[in-house]
């Protein structure tokens, strides 16, 4: 069953521009020059119910705008959108009871009170019956390990604990569709992992459809089989993640700390030197060659530390664009 269908969605923002200086300001005061910024430009996709899909793209790509249109917060400039059979921006209560929006950078949990009080407010807003509220609360508190936290004033909680509470507050009415906008932003690795596990668990347990936006490749990698890559308002890739990573991020970064200084020229034999200091160097190495290169390095030099990281998703997307045409050719709609 199709949960979300988006056809030719566009969203333009009108912004005004002004020339610098006083004269420019006066001109702009009298005659305002406006132009459209195409935040989302002719995007189409469908998502089946129960799918866990990742939205990838650099800042300003149009991810959040798309999510906001899907949640009914913004009117689109053009196109058709259907979420669970509803048109989101009509903001029908029946629709609003069936989805939830979680934003990593914004809070809905009351700052000065224990999270439990926010949960009780949401219970009233979503008209969750007592028994179901108890059951869902107990279940979510247990999965999220929030037993000790829900009765402590929210402002005294750590960022990670607060984020978990945000999730809990958003999920008490058991939404069938969940929009997660950067849910792991600013969290440490362990907490990111916890949130990921939870999202997977929620998706599996309730069969919920989930759209996740994130800057972190790891989030998307761990959770989503399918990704939509958006840049400059265009959908540039729709497909499974393996293809993206293999094709567009066919390298990793390796940071090596040596016991004694090593000259830069000698390192070029192992990979592309990205940054160099005599004792600590970062190399860019082809994905397939990573095991072999690290083995050689360890053999050739006394190595103190060796750290291998995936490229940032922003880099992958940028590379995807510098590749030019093949990226656009991948569009599946």
């Amino acid at each position: 069953m199709t949960a979300i269908s988006v056809k030719n969605l566009s969203k333009y923002y009108e912004v005004h521009q002004k020339e610098p200086g006083l004269v420019g300001s006066l001109k702009s005061f009298v005659l305002r020059k406006t132009y459209d910024v195409k935040a989302v430009d002719d995007i189409s996709f469908t998502i089946e119910s129960g799918e866990l899909v990742g939205f990838l793209g650099p800042n300003g790509a149009g991810k959040t705008t798309t999510l906001k249109v899907l949640s009914g917060l913004l009117y689109p400039t053009g196109g058709d959108v259907s979420v669970l059979g509803y048109t989101p921006w009509q903001r029908q209560a029946a629709f609003q009871r069936r989805f939830a929006l979680v934003m990593g950078q914004k809070n809905q949990v009351w700052w000065d009170l224990p999270p439990m009080e926010t949960f009780l407010i949401n219970k009233e807003i979503y008209e969750v019956p007592d028994a179901q509220f108890r059951e869902t609360l107990d279940e979510l508190v247990q999965i999220l390990e929030l037993e000790k936290v829900i009765n402590v004033q929210a402002r005294k909680l750590s960022l990670g604990e607060r984020m978990k509470c945000e999730l809990l507050a958003a999920l008490l009415h058991r939404p069938q569709v969940l929009f997660l906008d950067e849910p792991t932003i600013g969290l440490d690795v362990v907490m990111q992992q916890n949130i990921r596990n939870f999202v997977r668990e929620y998706n599996a347990r309730y069969g919920a459809t989930v759209i996740l936006t994130s800057h972190y490749m790891r989030d998307v990698e761990a959770l989503c089989d399918r990704v939509l890559i958006i840049d400059h308002g265009h959908l540039v890739f729709d497909g499974d993640l393996d293809t993206v990573v293999r094709r567009y991020a066919d390298y990793k970064f390796m940071t090596v700390t040596f016991e004694s200084p090593v000259v830069e020229a000698a390192l070029a034999a192992y990979g592309t030197v990205v940054s160099y200091r005599p004792r600590t160097t970062t190399l860019r190495i082809a994905r397939d060659a990573v095991p072999q290169v690290s083995a050689r390095l360890l053999q050739d030099y006394p190595v103190l530390d060796l750290n291998i990281v995936e490229p940032e998703v922003d880099d992958v997307v940028r590379q995807l664009f510098s590749g030019g045409k093949p990226a656009y050719a991948e569009v599946v709609s």
Binding site: G72, L73, M103, K106
Partner: peptide, 9 residues
């Protein structure tokens, strides 16, 4: 934060 309010029934 009005986003949260607008998305609720």
């Amino acid at each position: 934060e009005l986003d949260f309010v607008l998305s609720k029934p």
